[in-house]
Design a protein around this nucleic acid. Structure first.
Lengths: 206, 206
DNA sequence: TAGATTGTTAATCGATTAACAATC
DNA sequence: TAGATTGTTAATCGATTAACAATC
């Protein structure tokens, strides 16, 4: 590790900036400022400037940021100026919805395979993918060199699946199963559990 | 606001503690410690004790925490010792998967209605719910007194839907559309966008 | 009792904000 | 030029951790 260390909390905000900036592009906007972006996102202008300054100088005094250019730069920082292939594990409601999700295109990701261990699901079509059996998962992922997987299996199978994914060389897991996973230090995990988000809000409700 | 103010970041960790504790209950465990819980979650024992101490004294020196009791206490703190009814807006892949999701039961939530503005979707069954037209959304939510909604419509319709939900009296929104929403201060919003999580991980990948 | 673990305090660490010189 | 906005510094604010008396 020779580069200066960037706080993970900063990395976590970059995708949010990128999403808002790409939306501005869609709106036909060409230039923005840290203030405008901050207002859209509910983040202070100072924080946005500070975050971006960790990676370089992307703006111009007096005028702000050229949106196209800033989008390109953030895409490069986040390594999403390429398409990452994804394996989806679990072909139930969630896995199927994710496999068919149209929102990955142009944001750096593409689902490439989907697996399930349920004999009734194996062989069926989900979007444009045939559901493969879990038994072939490790070699299939290895052969394709896939580094990113999404876990959408029941909670009691999720750790076992995670172990296999690690074995297959996966380095990033997006886990939809409602539990924390244990993985080696060099494997990244992010969690999506709607209940966690909901419970965070009910604290404030009557 | 008379109570002492609890940091939102602490509130955000409580659901994670709760999920792990409820899992321990399923495993037949009766007692745990801040150290054990911390190891499972990748959080320091000191932080867990500090977080819990914001709300009371739930443990015993020398022995730790009675899991059942701690679960009850956290459920009460988070207001999830009741069932919150949810309206789902959007009956596409994501909305349908969420409406059928079995993971809400016993965690404090129940989907009660689903809406879509696509004539082909209206009237169809999603799980045990008939998809209703968006035109009746505001009065239906008002009449049922529903305070929580999930937005699962395309990005370009999401703000419009959010405005209507606010009008209907909704106080908490879980937004699956990939953009930031603008809502009044007293309305809570949480976001689920798989791409945001993925991009946060690709930064660290080669 | 001896060992374990809590709840809490004080110290450390890190993140956010305010402010402004630089400059477009 | 005058106005606007960046990038950066220093100050503030808040969160995490270490340590330990209390006590089960």
């Amino acid at each position: 590790m020779t580069e200066k260390m960037i706080p993970d909390i900063v990395i976590g905000r970059l995708p949010v900036y990128l999403r808002a900036l790409q939306r501005m592009v869609q709106e036909g906007r060409q230039v923005t400022s840290s203030q405008e972006l901050g207002e859209r996102l509910g983040i202070s202008a100072a924080q946005i400037r500070k975050d971006l300054s960790q990676f370089g100088e992307f703006g111009k005094q007096g005028t702000g940021y050229q949106i196209d250019y800033l989008v390109d730069q953030i895409r490069e920082i986040l390594n999403v100026n390429q398409v990452w292939e994804i394996a989806v594990i679990g072909a139930g409601d969630i896995g199927s919805a994710v496999a068919r999700y149209g929102g990955f295109a142009n944001r750096g990701f593409a689902v490439r395979m989907i697996f399930d261990n349920n004999p009734e699901a194996i062989g069926k079509l989900v979007g444009s993918f045939t559901v493969q059996e879990t038994a072939v998962m490790v070699p299939a992922i290895q052969q394709a060199g896939i580094q990113i997987a999404m876990i959408a299996v029941p909670a009691n199978q999720a750790q076992e699946v995670a172990d296999k994914l690690v074995e297959a060389g996966v380095k990033a897991i997006l886990n939809y199963a409602p539990l924390s996973l244990n993985v080696p230090e060099d494997v990244h995990v992010q969690y999506i559990d709607p209940v966690i988000h909901l419970q965070r809000m009910t604290y404030y409700l009557e």
